[in-house]
Design a protein around this nucleic acid. Structure first.
Length: 257
DNA sequence: ATGGCGTATTTAATACGA
């Protein structure tokens, strides 16, 4: 099973690129973030025509997450992160796909930090850690994937000193990510590529992609039983170079069926 | 250190992203 995550930065603006990438790489599951579309303005039929079933949770203007599947059994479990009834952001959707629980998340950016947006990010992380612990305790296979908006270490950013005050790289954010790993999750990309320079995001500004001035902020966390099944992982970096690309590139893993 | 780009909405100018 090949599972991908892709922050599309507006699904409707990204459809030509998204369809081209799906056709080219044929993931069995694709988790999407930043749909930037209300629930009723999601291109369901075009995706069905491309062979993909979709569940999604949209929102006007911002956020929005979806899980696409190709020839797989999918059952939605929830479309909100537990722990705060007042939270209106569409940032989380969870489903079981052929027996594997897949969580698709779009973690808050948190800038500027400090401030209310950073507080929201840290509160969201607390809720996410609590829910992740519950999922882990089920003992079932689980994948937590999406745009974490966290640069885990200095090896995951082209110039760490420029990012020390940024919400993506502040100690609180890095610590929260390490706390997740300490629960027992495995960072799939780092597991297979412990020392390589791997980025998943390149700013639209300053020719960041051309200079390879990137960040690694889109991640796959695997429950322990899935780690021996991890066959391969990577970033479809070339997609970032296409016309009208998102500022993120798609990231994927392949598990033994 | 700043601002650069891309997308959405209240279609002009602002908010937001990372």
């Amino acid at each position: 099973m090949k599972i991908a995550t892709y922050n599309v930065n507006s699904i409707n603006a990204r459809m030509p690129v998204l369809l081209r990438w799906l056709e080219e790489t044929q993931p069995d599951v694709a988790c999407l973030q930043e749909l930037k579309a209300p629930q009723e303005n999601f291109p369901e039929q075009a995706l069905l025509d491309a062979g993909y079933n979709a569940i999604w949770h949209g929102q006007k203007s911002w956020n929005g997450v979806a899980i696409l599947t190709r020839n797989r059994n999918i059952t939605e479990v929830r479309r909100a992160l537990p722990g705060d009834e007042e939270d209106t952001h569409s940032r989380y959707i969870e489903a079981v796909v052929d027996g594997v629980t897949i969580a698709c998340l779009y973690l808050p950016n948190g800038n500027p930090a400090p401030g209310p947006k950073f507080d929201y990010k840290l509160a969201w992380l607390d809720r996410f850690k609590a829910h992740a612990a519950q999922l882990l305790a089920t003992g079932k296979p689980v994948i937590l994937t999406g745009d974490y908006n966290i640069i885990p270490t200095g090896a995951d950013v082209y110039k760490p000193e420029r990012w020390v005050d940024d919400a993506l790289f502040r100690p609180e954010s890095r610590e929260a990510f390490q706390n997740l790993l300490a629960q027992g999750w495995t960072d799939a990309i780092r597991h297979l590529y412990p020392t390589e320079t791997i980025y998943t995001f390149w700013d639209y500004f300053r020719n960041a992609y051309g200079r390879d001035a990137g960040l690694r902020i889109d991640h796959f966390l695997l429950s322990p039983d899935l780690v021996p099944q991890l066959e391969a992982a990577g970033v479809d970096k070339h997609v970032r170079g296409w016309e009208k690309s998102s500022d993120h590139g798609p990231v994927w893993i392949r598990l033994k069926d």
